[in-house]
Nucleic acid binder design. Structure first.
Lengths: 204, 204, 204, 204
DNA sequence: AATGAATGAGGATTCATTCAT
DNA sequence: TATGAATGAATCCTCATTCAT
């Protein structure tokens, strides 16, 4: 009887749990669908694409988007999180394997530019005054600024660079250089960014 | 009589002429009013300010704005023409008076940045996909690209720089660096632009 | 053995019974949790507060709210039932202890106003066209109209009042007077309601 | 010649003026169309009817509504202005022609109730917290409160009433009594309002 | 030539209610 | 039974541009 009670309890608990687990799995899958749809729409229409378009592409109602990602910034961050993380994590590795800190910085900036340039409108959104993008800006800074600062600091310590710019300015500048780059075949943001890095160089 | 006729004719001719002259003067004065109003509104609301606001400031109807400046780009160009011209004309002078072509380039870029940074939203408009800004982009390029190219070419010829970037890329890059700079006290577009220029430098 | 069987049976019967009892107790506790949560949310957000908020406050799913209270009116009624009952029951008592039926009516109206005025949005909900509130309206009427009618009838019988208004009109009027009173410090619904009651007064 | 110039000038001035006059006449006619449409829609859908509905009814774009009446309150006020004015102006007249100030007050309240009750949703809007209705509230108060205050004051001075309520409370109360009255055949707001007035009465 | 009234597309956001798990 | 994810209708307001007067 106790056994049955327990069983019953565990069954109902288990049922609840597995239902909840199932629901969660479902929701997670759904989230991924959303992210995929958003990513796809972002490519063609930029990160400011209408919510309705994203919802349509994902085959869900708009409310579903809002449920999962209350703010547009939340959605954008979620879409690009993996790549931002990868970029952040690449910093120390590059520092370790490159010939010099300055070289590492250059390679890291390349990664950053390659990332931004392929994300239609992202670079612009990062600078947008729009309150809805405040968080986006913050996320990028939180995650990448320390990495940039470390590389920059290492280069300075090695005497390769002077104290010309802050890490923030450098990132902001590089970000700016990427704006609209995807539409202009005459313009190579990567090259410009490397020029910036080169400009930091100091002869010993 | 002939004299009188002539006189009369000449008088009426003169009247027509002076009326026409007067009308032209009037129109010019009118245009100037428009430009002043636009400039004032651009300062506070950016170059994308509502047409109605500009018209109101100028004390004319919106139709008048459209008559004189069919596209927004036309208006923006007209507002900033003097400064763009001044910038363009400064190129050769700087080349003549500077210690080196590379130095001249740096000083010229400074002028360009100073100009852009103080024009709320102009740098962004220069990159805008918006059809209404196509002409704006074109004008800036037409007028400034040759100047930049000359400075860049001179520096290259003097062996101060390599062939890293085209004049177009450089201008585009510098323009990009100015986007949103007016709102961010942590960010000094001038410094970044100079970094770019420094990055062009080659040791002999 | 029989004893044991009986015992067992009775035990299991008892188990079932107590389980059922326990379940009922559980359900009741659950309901109470819901009502407490709803009451709390009503205070701050009014009786039209989002279902989700109430569910969240109660720590249950929204579906649970709907199961127990299919319409919002059901929930609102349940939340205020005690107070409505108390108000209803106060009628005869007041009639018994007051100096006159008209005085009793006045005191009873005071009770009613005091109740309504402290329930954010309730008075408005009572008049709402909204289908979801139809039942609410009905409940209040079912329960309170007879009481009001009795008081009013007694006063008329005593010659204190004329047949100016129906009990329904009086209640409706008093209810209306309470709308929005909680937000307006310049407005005293109680005073107005008493004016209404005073207006009923007839000299013998 | 001078004559011609003057003539020309006066012609062009005259043209501009008559164009402007024509435009203004046109616009005025248009405004009336708008007001008629709004009034019609208000009758069926209440004063909170969607702007689009009103525009459709008037056969104009929504922008036209916004141009003429930036705020919903502006529109509502415009629609009812004549009647509010009439109500305001009736006050002194009633005072003059009635048997007593208190009687005048009663008749004036009748006018006010008759006005409100036929305006679907207006009474409710007058109490709405909604910022868009703040102005509406203010207009009614500005225009009618002094009238009510005068009548009330005269009655008090004549010793017919006591100082039970302020003019504001009385108007607020009467306004409240009218909420939803148009939908309820069992409820006569006019009668209730008169009860309120009767309640003010004091025997000498 | 000037005026300024009119048009109407376009996108964000909230929440009651249902129903699969 | 309980959960809570998903749906999607409904309305607001701005502003570039046109064109009748």
């Amino acid at each position: 009887m106790a056994g049955r009670d327990i069983h019953t309890v565990s069954e109902s608990d288990g049922g609840a749990r597995s239902a909840s687990r199932a629901r969660r799995a479902d929701a997670r899958r759904n989230q991924q669908t959303l992210l995929d749809a958003a990513a796809a729409v972002f490519v063609t229409s930029g990160v400011e694409a209408p919510v309705r378009d994203i919802a349509a592409r994902a085959g869900v109602g708009m409310g579903t988007i809002y449920r999962h990602f209350p703010t547009r910034a939340d959605l954008v961050v979620a879409v690009y999180r993996h790549q931002v993380e990868a970029c952040a994590e690449a910093g120390p590795a590059l520092l370790a394997e490159s010939a010099s800190p300055h070289a590492a910085l250059g390679r890291w900036i390349d990664l950053f530019v390659d990332f931004l340039v392929t994300k239609h409108g992202l670079a612009a959104a990062l600078q947008s005054d729009d309150a809805g993008f405040r968080t986006l800006h913050a996320y990028f800074l939180d995650r990448l600024l320390p990495v940039c600062a470390e590389l920059l600091g290492a280069a300075a310590e090695a005497g390769e660079t002077g104290p010309d710019v802050t890490a923030y300015e450098l990132m902001r500048g590089v970000g700016n250089l990427c704006i609209g780059a995807e539409n202009d075949p005459e313009y190579d943001a990567r090259r410009l960014a490397q020029l910036l890095v080169a400009g930091l160089r100091r002869e010993r």
